[in-house]
């Protein structure tokens, strides 16, 4: 705290700025956490980094550039289809499953804590488990392949979509619901005519956004056996870096296109 005395004798005290508490705690946490991260100059092999990048993005051994790119358009097409299929089916199924849960979690629609508290608990449980772990569990139950990918993406989407959607439902304009109730409409009918028109455009925009996330994370799902491009990357990571590099280039382009389409459609919806 600093005290200032003006020329006319009045004093003003500048209060303690809370920002220093925040800065202090961040610095302290950084210090404590950094002790858990092993660091040794011998870890760092920037030369290796350069070599791996060259290996990823040039043909291996006696393969030609032609081989490098034709691999993308022949062998990678099927895995790419798998990746997109499982992202699409999982996003759509998970989002549809999320709708009832989101409605049951919304305090303004369901006024009973006995319903919305358990609903939110289910939602949070699914939301905390990373998609990769859902995929691991799915692989255990149904074996490797895109079905476990679909299951993992469905459950992951179910978790985040229900959370995002219920937040939207809780902020809608409730006055049309009142109007519908005054005409003698049932609860379902108020939902259909007063809530749905307000929520639908946001729902579709979220659907596209989550699809984008899912295409990106499907890479890692393949890594634990859920099919698609991720599986190709995992299978080749030890010996065929050029195949991995080609997969990376393909994923990069696909995600870029998905992201561009997604932001285009979403900006149209607003």
């Amino acid at each position: 705290m600093t005290k200032y005395t003006l020329t006319n004798g009045k004093t003003v005290t500048k209060p303690f700025n809370k920002i220093w508490i925040i800065v202090g705690s961040v610095v302290l946490l950084l210090f404590l956490f950094s002790r858990l991260i092993p660091y040794d100059a011998s870890f760092i092999k920037l030369g290796e980094l350069r070599i791996i990048i060259v290996k990823l993005f040039t043909p291996k051994g006696n393969r030609t550039w032609n081989d490098y790119f034709s691999y993308i358009f022949t062998s990678l097409i099927e895995p790419l289809k798998e990746t997109l299929n499982m992202s699409f089916a999982g996003t759509l199924l998970g989002s549809l499953m999320a709708v009832p849960l989101a409605v049951l979690s919304a305090k303004n629609i369901v006024k009973l804590p006995i319903i919305y508290i358990p609903a939110r608990t289910i939602m949070n449980l699914f939301r905390t488990i990373p998609a990769m772990i859902l995929a691991l569990i799915a692989v255990f139950f149904v074996g490797t392949g895109i079905l476990s990918g679909i299951i993992a993406i469905t459950l992951f989407t179910f978790g985040i979509m229900s959370k995002m959607l219920y937040e939207v439902i809780e902020t809608i304009d409730m006055s049309p619901v009142e109007a519908l109730e005054s005409t003698g409409a049932k609860k379902v009918e108020s939902l259909r005519y007063a809530v749905m028109p307000q929520v639908l455009p946001v729902f579709i925009s979220y659907l596209i956004y989550i699809f984008e996330i899912n295409v990106r994370s499907s890479t890692i799902l393949g890594y634990v056996g859920a099919g698609g491009i991720g599986t190709v990357i995992k299978d080749n990571i030890l010996y065929n870096y050029d195949r991995v590099g080609a997969s990376i280039i393909l994923m990069f382009v696909v995600i870029l296109v998905v992201q561009l389409i997604s932001s285009l459609v979403r900006s149209k919806l607003q």
Binding site: P176, S182, Y193
Partner: peptide, 13 residues
């Protein structure tokens, strides 16, 4: 029938 101060229409419909 009921009429409200703020009309209570579904604005997007």
């Amino acid at each position: 029938g009921m009429i409200f101060q703020s009309f209570n229409l579904v604005k997007r419909m």
